[in-house]
Computed example of a mutant assay.
Amino acid sequence: MRLRGLIRKEFLQIVRDPSAVAIAFLMPVVLLILFGYGVSLDAEDIQLGIVTEDRSAQTAAFTAGFTGSRYFHVHRYEHAGTAQRDLARGAIDGLVHLRGDFAAGLADRRPAPIQLIVNGVDANTARIIQGYVQGVWSGWLAERAGAAEAPTPVTLEQRVWFNPEVRSRNYLVPGLIVVIMTLIGTLLTAMIMAREWERGTMEALLVTPVSMAEIIAGKLLPYFLLGAGGMALSTLMALLLFEVPLRGSLVVLAGAAALFLVVALAMGLLISIIAKNQFVAGQAAIVATFLPAFMLSGFIFDLNSMPWPIEGLTFLIAARYFVAILQTVFLAGDVWAVIAPNALALAAMGLVFLILIRRRAHKRLE
């Protein structure tokens, strides 16, 4: 009965101050649209320069692969020097150079090298351009082998698992949901205890017969429901707006989300208990949760590529485990070899935070 009264009190507070509703439902919409459309690892409309020093049919057949591709916008040059100057000033992103003896080398079965120069300032885009050019080159070789009716000694058959369209959005949006829910879950509870202290209502709660455990539960449960609503909204946006496939079970997704919400809400509540000031609690929540979740969760950056001290630090970031679960459930399905250990890690972290909250929260003023 006392717990029900505390929960009702918290819901009335949410109704009077709808900022929590805005954090739970408006913030994920804004951030998902902003980051979902703004952050992309795909490269399209690549400005590619092509230098052809001869006008043979072989040269035309090879360069047709670039002009017919949706990834390239082709600029043709007569001289390599002009193309290299445009590459240096950023007018083009890459340069393919076919020398004047290209067709003759093919006819005489001599080496006919193809030069590729890529602007490597953005290493990720440079690697993507290199892969696209190699794809055009492989397709051209296959066409030549088919036209000659000669068997190809080695045939490369590529198969991309889990994300056959190779859309970076399919990979990024689940990670974005994790980062956004980390921020939302922590902010929802980061200021509630501090608000009670600032407004002087905490003293009134302390003199009531309710226990500290009931106060903590009364603070967590309403915001857990708000966070679950925000998670459901984010999942719907991922499926309907960004068209990310969901190959796993909704039950597994909901269970993992519940575990992560407990961790995020508990982190925020612990910050609120320690800070006792709304401004400090809000700033601490952003610094302690959002930035580590963005940088150290595997959302964008490969964790195995980090120096070992930083990679070791990522095991303390709850978002790391939820990113692994969400990306697996969305793209691969219910792979329990990935889901189970990460879910156990989230459960352990949630238990640790709840124990810390119980130890830091006391029914006394000091």
Rank of each mutant, 00 (worst) to 15 (best):
S138I: 02
L95S: 04
R167C: 08
R99L: 07
T289E: 01
M191V: 15
L346C: 04
F294D: 00
V338S: 05
P174M: 07
A285Q: 05
R159F: 13
W197Y: 10
A254P: 11
T59A: 15
E366L: 09
L172A: 02
I339Y: 02
V74S: 07
V323H: 04
V252G: 10
V160N: 09
F224P: 03
T152S: 14
R8N: 09
L31Y: 01
D54T: 14
A361V: 10
L116Y: 09
K219R: 14
V179T: 00
W336H: 08
L98I: 12
W140Y: 11
F25D: 02
G282M: 14
M202I: 13
L236E: 13
L6K: 06
K219T: 12
I180R: 01
V29F: 09
P209Y: 05
P309Q: 04
A318T: 06
N304D: 15
E78K: 12
H362M: 12
Q278Y: 04
H73K: 14
L253Q: 11
L3G: 11
F315C: 00
A361K: 06
R2T: 10
F330P: 10
H362L: 15
E243I: 00
L356T: 06
I325Q: 08
L188V: 06
D54Q: 15
M267Y: 12
V166A: 15
P309L: 01
L172C: 02
I300N: 00
S40C: 07
L269A: 11
A107S: 13
L246T: 07
Q115P: 04
T186M: 02
V178W: 01
A288R: 01
G333D: 08
G131C: 05
D93W: 11
I286H: 00
I325N: 13
M237E: 12
V74P: 11
L356N: 06
L351F: 03
L365T: 06
N124E: 06
P18F: 10
L3D: 04
T182R: 00
L31V: 08
G120N: 12
G229Q: 05
V30I: 15
A257V: 09
R55E: 15
A264G: 03
V335T: 10
G218H: 12
I117H: 03
A228L: 15
M193F: 13
A264T: 15
K363S: 12
G38D: 00
